[in-house]
Computed example of a mutant assay.
Amino acid sequence: MSAPALPDLPYSGAITDVAGIEVGHHTDSRRPTGSTVILAREGAVAGVDVRGAAPGTRETDLLSPGNFVQEVHAILLAGGSAWGLAAADGVVRWLEERGVGLDVRFGRLPIVPGAVLFDLPVGDARIRPDAASGYAACEAASIAAPAEGNVGAGAGALVGKLFGAQHAMKGGIGTASVKVGGVTVGALIACNALGDVLDPETGELLAGSRTDDGRALRDTRRSLLRGELPKPLLAGTNTTIGVIATDAVLTKVQAQRLAAVAHDGLARAINPVHTMSDGDTLFALATGRVALKDEAPGMTVLSTLAAEVAAQATVRAVLAARAIATAELSIPAARDWPQRQDGHVR
């Protein structure tokens, strides 16, 4: 799927700038939901770090450095809450048909960890990503820069829901990359955060909970500090998920560390983050196309880059998003917000 025309966005690059990575989306036409697959057909060393208290995940335990499996072949990101994990079955089938997977003597078994976000309030909640959605996302995968905003796992994402979904704004999916010393680090983030999203460079709010009249941003952090009480929340009804990828050669221990420090980028761009109602989960993939030689960036630099691209991709996720309307909700987006000036929300 090619990206729709977007306003000028900050930052640049895409996770597909990392050699060995492909991305595909499937967006369900019946309601805003979908699947996004990040393919590493030749295998990638992987790690994961779960910071939210209400995650929906698949095959994350095998990524522990002490466990047997050394490489994965894809990561699934999907809407639909835990039902959406079924989309991984389609990814597994697509890879198996192409002979991609771990040789287990009786066949090649594709290793496909995944994570989901909660987008059920947007449209008919009975429509969720399934195996066909995951398969379709694989069919659409390529090395081209992926579409951003209301696509794939970000199709039904909202942000700023602490004071009720009726005051939220549109979230989405975004990507970014940086290259230093011959090594590339990229991120793909589906932002469905309970908290607000802000510009990590200036601290300025970009999207989040709106005031009761819907005409201005409330500023969730300051509202909480003033003692305003949030609406009762169902655990797990939010969640930001994503993938950090690099072409560096990493061990499983290093990949897990990269996933962990990438959450610093979420913390710079989302406030509050990692809450009891979020299942924030980040994966890290290392395709190993570039060896870390003496003059190449080490883990300290790679960790800094991982946090940076995670923050950048989060910003792009909300700035690329478009307004939506359902029978129950009318959700504006940062790109067409009346108070937006010079690319930011005022």
Rank of each mutant, 00 (worst) to 15 (best):
T36H: 00
P121H: 14
I127W: 09
A87F: 02
R226K: 14
D213I: 02
D49G: 01
L234I: 12
G174T: 14
R126N: 14
D280M: 05
E328Q: 11
A255M: 05
F283C: 09
D8T: 11
L117V: 14
A87I: 01
G90Y: 07
A86S: 11
P110N: 00
D278N: 11
A165P: 08
D219K: 08
H73F: 00
L224T: 03
T304C: 09
M276D: 13
A193T: 06
V159K: 10
A153S: 15
L285H: 04
T287I: 12
E148H: 09
I244M: 10
V72Y: 07
G80T: 03
S303K: 10
A176S: 15
I143A: 14
A334L: 06
Q254P: 00
I331G: 04
T184E: 02
A259G: 08
R58N: 02
R218K: 15
V197S: 08
D336M: 10
L117W: 10
G84E: 01
D89N: 14
A147S: 15
G90Q: 04
D247Y: 07
T287R: 05
R340G: 14
R335A: 15
A19Q: 10
A310Y: 04
R215F: 07
K293V: 00
Y11N: 07
A307K: 04
A235W: 04
W337D: 03
W337G: 01
A333C: 15
L109P: 08
G99T: 14
R340Q: 15
A132Y: 03
A137F: 13
E96V: 00
A153N: 12
V178D: 11
V151Y: 12
V197F: 08
V185W: 07
G56T: 11
I270F: 04
G84R: 06
I244W: 04
G84A: 03
A136W: 10
A325I: 01
A157G: 13
V243H: 03
E22F: 03
R210A: 05
G195N: 00
L39Q: 00
G160T: 08
Q254E: 15
I15K: 07
A317T: 10
P4G: 14
T60H: 04
L282Q: 01
E295M: 06
V48M: 02
Q166N: 12
A334T: 02
G288Y: 02
A165Y: 12
Y11L: 07
M276R: 07
D130W: 07
G171S: 10
D196E: 13
A284R: 02
P32R: 10
N238Y: 11
Q166D: 13
L9N: 11
I173V: 15
V23Y: 08
V178W: 13
D61A: 14
G47I: 01
H274M: 12
T314K: 07
I270D: 00
L120S: 06
G279P: 07
H167M: 03
G13S: 09
A321Y: 03
Q166G: 09
A140Y: 03
A3M: 15
A334V: 05
S81I: 05
A145M: 10
A74L: 12
E204M: 08
S330K: 05
A155Y: 11
A145V: 04
F118D: 01
R210C: 00
T300G: 09
L305M: 15
A87E: 06
L85M: 11
H274Y: 03
T246P: 01
